[in-house]
């Protein structure tokens, strides 16, 4: 058995919408090994967003199991989930989700604050993370002083600073033009080459093309799960 980071067994998620019960996920099973690069695709309404929330431990399933890095997280209480999000997951969002009033460095330090890292170590690690994404000279800039691509790289630095088990990206290039998109995808490729496990949720085929494996959801179920020849960004 290979080294599994994510193991999902028959996961369901139901929402109460007024009188109706809506099943967003109807029994998804999925295994992701360490250092895999997986794209999760699907049209809107396919359960893609719910899947992303589940993977990111922002939501808990109605039934089924979710093992993340050896821990069963599907039944954890709020604060335990917060700890898992802090230690195991690095988020990259479509809208970057940086704190507007904080500098790049402060933004990157934030997960370390919640991990209880001392302020000196925080600074050092946040600097190193920003240097890894090529923003060593922009540390004191506020998000509104940075370009979209730079913002997303700050967000990637923030996602990586706590050395998470998975990097979870939700439409990471949705707000970027094609040149900066390629830029961000190159960062992802490089991270994967360095051993990072990456899960990208996207509806764009050319983004998914960077992944070695594409999982397609449809109507709350896995419609296909295929390995493919990766396209490396030039």
């Amino acid at each position: 058995m290979s080294d599994l980071v994510i193991q999902i067994v028959d996961l369901t998620r139901e929402y109460q919408m007024g009188e109706d019960r809506v099943q967003a996920l109807k029994g998804v099973s999925l295994e992701i090994a360490r250092n895999e690069y997986v794209a999760i695709m699907g049209p809107s309404g396919s359960g893609k967003s719910t899947m992303m929330n589940m993977l990111g431990c922002l939501d808990t399933p109605t039934s089924g199991e979710y093992w993340l890095n050896g821990q069963e997280v599907s039944r954890m209480p709020d604060d335990a989930l917060a700890r898992v999000r802090n230690r195991e997951i690095g988020f990259v969002f479509q809208t970057f989700n940086l704190l507007p009033r904080a500098s790049a460095l402060q933004n990157v330090e934030l997960p370390l604050v919640y991990a209880g890292v001392s302020s000196r170590a925080r600074r050092d690690r946040a600097r190193a993370a920003l240097e890894r994404v090529g923003l060593g000279n922009r540390m004191d800039h506020k998000p509104n002083e940075l370009s979209g691509g730079q913002r997303q790289r700050v967000a990637i630095a923030r996602a990586l600073v706590n050395e998470p088990s998975i990097l979870l990206a939700d439409e990471p290039t949705g707000n970027l033009d094609s040149a900066t998109s390629a830029d961000v995808m190159r960062v992802f490729d490089r991270l994967q080459a360095q051993g990072q496990t990456i899960v990208v949720v996207t509806h764009e085929a050319d983004i998914a093309a960077h992944a070695a494996r594409v999982v397609t959801l449809k109507d709350g179920l896995v419609a296909s799960d295929a390995r493919q020849e990766r396209i490396q960004a030039a």
């Binding site: 700890r83 999000r85 802090n86």
Partner: peptide, 8 residues
């Protein structure tokens, strides 16, 4: 954002 990043 803070919660996603691990704020309890």
């Amino acid at each position: 954002i803070r919660k996603a990043l691990g704020a309890k």
